[in-house]
Amino acid sequence: MTMKAIDQNDVYIQQKGYVVSDMNGDKVMMSIESGKYYNLGQTGGRIWELLVEGNTIFGISTVLSSEYSVEQATCQLQVEQFMNTLLKEGLIVSKRD
């Protein structure tokens, strides 16, 4: 079985069904179904917010590089790696699915 990887051209959106909260600036969430607790941290929390209505890696990194002191290329690479983790955990889905 091949694991899905993030596609740079795809639009991704939050998977529904998670209890989400802010804790000392970190975004934390819990899945009753899978019995898992997630801490996305501050930057991850901001990425999560940008996935509410669907977004691409490029779209997210463009917003983040305007808000944070980071180069767009570096930001895009790290956002892609992070979103790959979210996808594997089932926290986000492609709008094409």
Partner: peptide
């Protein structure tokens, strides 16, 4: 107008099994 940018932290996901 200069908007001060926040410090960048590499995003990471911490996972804990509730069970």
């Amino acid at each position: 107008m200069n908007i001060e940018k926040k410090e960048w932290q590499t995003p990471s996901l911490e996972v804990l099994e509730i069970s």
